[in-house]
């Protein structure tokens, strides 16, 4: 088993409330950037990502005493972050849209987003990700951007590796179709 950080022990078996808060802050400092990027890729805009990242760490604080290390801590936290992002998407669900329509909307929103710096290729990539169905989006972001092995994603999410691979395959095909349709973007 991979050695766990000192603050994890303090979070799981706190010696005092002050020490536990210090450990919690250490955990946030370690993971806030990757968790933020993860939920931002799933949600698109900063306001939703900010909400999801805060909810993620509150849930981690609540559940960490039950973490037994079946999956690596990073994968476990990302799985919680993914669920929080999906919860937020579920609360804001609008009518069903086609992939093309969702892609156009996401692309337009990213172009107008003051906190998005990507070029046309990056915009196409992220708009295609945001247009994916929610489960496919979660798997694609964990696998493509975070490079988590299927085994770790499976352990953290409880989904079989076969189902994860199928989801990733469908997602990657859709994303590839939009990204390669752009001029001057290599396949």
């Amino acid at each position: 088993m991979v050695p766990q950080p000192v603050w994890l022990e303090e979070l799981q078996h706190p010696t005092s409330s002050a020490a536990r808060e210090q450990a919690f802050r250490a955990l946030i400092a370690e993971y806030q950037r990757p968790v933020y990027q993860h939920v931002r890729r799933m949600l698109g805009n900063h306001a939703d990502a900010d909400d999801a990242v805060q909810e993620t760490f509150i849930q981690v604080h609540r559940s960490v005493s039950g973490f037994r290390g079946e999956a690596p801590l990073r994968a476990w936290i990302f799985a919680i972050a993914g669920r929080k992002a999906l919860d937020l998407l579920a609360r804001r669900r609008v009518r069903e849209r086609s992939f093309d329509e969702a892609f156009e909307q996401a692309s337009t929103a990213l172009a107008a987003d003051p906190y998005f710096d990507g070029d046309a290729a990056a915009r196409a990539l992220h708009a295609a990700v945001l247009a994916l169905p929610e489960r496919q989006r979660q798997v694609f972001v964990l696998r493509y951007f975070e490079a988590l092995p299927y085994a770790e994603i499976a352990a953290a999410t409880g989904v079989t590796e076969g189902a994860l691979k199928a989801s990733y395959h469908h997602a990657a095909e859709k994303v590839r179709r939009f990204v390669t349709a752009l001029p001057n973007v290599p396949d």
Binding site: Q32, R33, Y36, Q37, R40, R41, H46, A49, D50, Y115, F116, D117, G118, A122, R123, H126
Partner: peptide, 11 residues
């Protein structure tokens, strides 16, 4: 480079 930015001082 990350395409997504945050407001200054966010983290």
């Amino acid at each position: 480079m990350e395409a997504f930015r945050t407001p200054p001082g966010y983290f």
